[in-house]
Amino acid sequence: MSLLEVRKLSVAFQTQGGWFRAVEGVNLSLDRGEVLAIVGESGSGKSVAMLALMGLLPATARIECERLLLDGQDLLGLAPKARRRLNGGTMAMIFQEPMSSLNPCFTIGYQIDEAVRTHLGGGRKARRERVLHLLELVGIPDPPRRFDAYPHQLSGGMSQRAMIAMALAADPELLIADEPTTALDVTVQAQILELLLKLQQERDMGLILITHDMGVVAETAQHVLVQYAGQQVERQAVRGLFEQPLHPYTRALLDALPERAPPGDFLPTIPGLVPGQHDRPRGCLFAPRCGHAGALCQTQEPVWQQLESGPGWRCHFVQGDPPAPVFPAPAALQQGGEQGEQD
């Protein structure tokens, strides 16, 4: 049994202009000890889907899901009390902005201790020991001193370490990291990622890593889920994804990586923007930005296709087994990229 199983998760927000579909039909499953990366541009619904898992969305959100199992336990319609036991207990989450994610009015020690007290309980002394141990575990130097430090006295990297310590307080089985390194210095980014992976391996945790950095994906994940405009457009093992991307969007993302870009003056980009609430295309959501889109793409929504060997994608192209890269030469895409840049 997998640790996490999500089938057809959809999230919509009530706005003044009607319902905004932020996440549509996301499926995923994750095993213990596995790292799953979710990639996509801003606004692709990566964070929203994970916040939905954690039950952290505002009341204006409507969540629909066929199946949502964590460790065999149904998360749908969970009573608030049971939900609180899970949050910070079995599943924990760390966020993009470590500085603002910590409460400025309380010490680091107090905030980590809250998680320990809520889920493990125990006497004051034992809890303090646990917090100091956690601080040491995440590589914060001089834990007894940092215990009494306020968030504003810590750097971004240290704050994220403290957030990780808080998330690990009750030995969660699933850790969701929402762009944990985006707000940090480049040098610190690598350290934090390394720390996350080390802890994940030591504790055999399932780790969901939300990112828009393909480099991070390549280094860390076993499986990758590509999201676009709230839809899942591709899902496969990391190796396959980099060697043989199945969806034009994935390919375009990879082509935009400097280290993979064909030599030339311009780095390929994807022209246009992610569709918003009011300009959603009728057919494939990516069609307006896709270098390969044909008449069918404009009018008809593509269905999810899945190979028995695992990879799946949402596109009218590439059918059959094994999948053949039948896209036109990347030149077409590259051209599109240049136009996009001049726009």
Partner: peptide, 21 residues
Amino acid sequence: EDYVRTAYAKGLPTWRVILVH
């Protein structure tokens, strides 16, 4: 604020998130 979300993510009861954090 983000830290309120963090407090909920920690599994704290609502009253504690509101009245403390």
